[in-house]
Write a protein that binds this DNA or RNA. Structure first.
Lengths: 167, 167
DNA sequence: TCTATCTAGTTCAACTTTCAAGAAAAGGTC
DNA sequence: GACCTTTTCTTGAAAGTTGAACTAGATAGA
């Protein structure tokens, strides 16, 4: 048992507060920025775009729903809705999984691949402008380590963590 | 005029791709994590909680709508909906601005302050566990600089940038 | 003043996300 | 096989967000 609920809160220091605030500001602005860029240039939010990218890099341009959800760090429910929408656009289609009758594969269509090829250059440019062009090589390296640490912290191996794609 | 639309795309290097992916993974998981923690312990999403925090630190526990939107990096529309919901909960109330008849102040109520006091310890603990306990002092410092740089990049001073609270 | 423009905030409809519930197949255990 | 549990994915309703349209008040210029 922990005593967290009764012991004195370990408040954030001034520096920690500033860092936390900066983190929230930057991530909120970046999310807004890319959502708008992609809504304008590709007609979908950033999360949906990320799904198409995943599929484009998967063998045979297809992936099981749960694996796709795990890669995108989202719930299966959210993914179901997203794929339904992308299917309506003709960029993805569903396919029964041969080996498991419960399973579905999301498949990137030719139209979907075209859409991706058209919008990729603009999106990469946006990512560069907003992130990589502004950071030194040192900072990029550091950011990578930090983000890997934080991500790993929330999905520790071999545990019963509350992960979105298992809900 | 730029030639971005016709010149060869500056694709991301392997390292940059890994960093970008790690950034997306970490931020997605963290957002999900805090949204859930606060939904469970305070009955509201993280964005709403942040609004109450802002108000609690403002002079006379009140703030003009647009300023609150600017601090939270969100649109005024989104804020309107959020304040309406928080008002229904009794944690915030609206007040006409004396000096500008178009203006509204969002005011943190006593109930809102109580709610904040009750849930703050648990939330700080969650932030520590997920972020500060996992990073070295060096990394915290570096993260702060990086995030400040990125945030500043998206809201440069004295420009006509497309900022959420001006839309 | 009169008028045009801008700013502050809200509203509606469309879209996205969450949560709880459920159908169907798979995997164990007896 | 029969039974129970788990896994996979979907659904529908409620909650949250977006973008465009709108009201009302402020501002600036002729």
């Amino acid at each position: 048992m922990t005593t967290a609920s009764t012991s004195a809160p370990r408040w954030l220091t001034d520096e920690e507060q500033r860092v936390w605030r900066a983190y929230l500001h930057a991530t909120t602005l970046l999310e807004d920025h890319f959502d708008r860029q992609l809504q304008r240039d590709a007609g979908m939010p950033h999360t949906y775009y990320g799904l198409l990218v995943q599929l484009s890099q998967a063998p045979r341009r297809r992936m099981r729903m749960t694996e796709l959800a795990r890669n995108a760090k989202i719930t299966r429910s959210r993914l179901s809705h997203a794929i339904a929408r992308l299917e309506k656009n003709g960029w993805v289609r569903r396919e029964d999984c041969p080996s498991d009758k419960r399973g579905q594969n999301a498949v990137l269509t030719d139209d979907g691949l075209d859409m991706l090829r058209r919008s990729a250059p603009g999106h990469v440019e946006a990512v560069r402008q907003a992130m990589f062009d502004r950071l030194t090589d040192e900072q990029v390296k550091s950011l990578g380590e930090i983000m890997r640490t934080l991500a790993t912290g929330l999905e520790p191996e071999g545990t019963d963590a509350d992960l979105p794609w298992l809900r």
